[in-house]
Amino acid sequence: MTANHTASPHTKHSVSRDDYARFPEIQRAARLRLLQMHYESKVGHIGGNLSCLDAILFLHHFVMQPADQFVLSKGHSVGALYIGLWSIGRLSDTDLQQFHKDHTHLAGHPVAGWMPEIAVATGSLGHGFPVAAGMAKGKQLQDQPGRVYCLMSDGEWQEGSNWEALIFAAHQNLDRLTVLVDVNGLQGFGSTTEVASMAGLRQRIEAFGATVRELDGHRPAALQELLATPEQGFQVILLNTIKGKGVSFMEAKMEWHYLPLTAEQFVQAQNEVRQA
């Protein structure tokens, strides 16, 4: 059983904003720990975790403040969130050993009510953005400080509820909401082009009145743009990423949406990350 994190304050991590130079070191440690956690628990979803891990790390180390909230709409990448929270000291190695085990809080998709950094249960796609929009509206109504950051997948935009939320967020001018999209181009049974094309996602979103920016989702220099003072109004940031980032045999391979690592693959993956 994992420790009860509910009562713990959302304290700012120890890494200062001037420590960007440390980010490659943070990335490497996090990738290794993510691979270990998934290997030991014998579960997949590794590819989509590695595509968004860098953004989650950057957000939690350098961007988010105690008044901010994070919603992981692509709940199947909760491994990356657990590792992000481990990286800032909010989860321990002992906690991570409970991933996917019986009597755990660290389920394969986020469950609610056990630590403040995991704001809501998600896992069914198309829910996180509308809930985050409600949270941003709640902040707006009460004039509360802080932003709501919501991380989505690109294939997830095939869910119609997101387009309802986009209409709402733009119309309500939810200036405390930032939606990040992990654009790795792959989904559960094909690419986002061949399944139900998401081509022109930026233009489609912009057509609804949102401000859209595109960033490299892995390069620290690009991710630093997340620190820029948000422009007025609701904004969407498309993060161009690579599924399975950092492990050669996983990169841009759809099957790593699902597969667990064999012992040999685990060793190879660790070596690649260490030597990168």
């Binding site: 409600g134 209409i167 709402f168």
Partner: peptide, 28 residues
């Protein structure tokens, strides 16, 4: 006034938004 929101014809969205607002302490 501002506490009344017409979310448009979007029942999925208004329920999720209500959940999010409730999460932030607004009875919705």
């Amino acid at each position: 006034g501002k506490w009344f929101i017409n979310g448009g014809i979007s029942e999925q969205n208004i329920v999720s938004v209500a959940a999010g607002m409730s999460k932030m302490g607004v009875q919705t």
